[in-house]
Amino acid sequence: MAATGVHTGERVSTLYRKFGTAIFSRCRRLLKDDALAEDATQEVFVRVLRHIESAPDDATALAWIYRISTNYCLNQIRDRSRQAEPTAPDELPEGEGDGAGSEMEMLDRETAMKLIRRAPEKLQEVAVLYYVDGLEQEQVAKTLGISRRTVINRLQEFIDRSKKFISRDGVA
């Protein structure tokens, strides 16, 4: 456990320089707006600082960064879409899919993000880590502190919903 104490500005600066790029790049990719990404980077770093200070290695620190920055950016995206769109993102039609599921594994990140923005909140984190970050199911489970079975179930639900969406509207 990290003891209470005020770290020097130098310590904060060193950690910010080291991990800032990973946070900034991630926020930029998810938010697609440089100014928002800059604000988000500061906020996420402050939130993640204590975790990365006590992390035993860089991989653990990155797991915290992925978890907290994903959550923060998805909240920002949801806030923006609530202001812009009157309909809930999870109100997808219940029609049958057209077999797009086999192509889901090969989704590029841009397409994945378009589908993720329309997915229900509970599926978004899992889908970002799996499709955008390319983490394995086990890594997603560890990062989010949930079981691998839950990850599999949520990914399947995401695929089912995305197939319906692609069948109806395409993804462009």
Partner: peptide, 14 residues
């Protein structure tokens, strides 16, 4: 899926 994960790429940069 035949690609490097974000974790691997970030660790490479670090």
């Amino acid at each position: 899926r035949g690609h490097l994960s974000s974790e691997t790429i970030d660790l490479l940069l670090l």
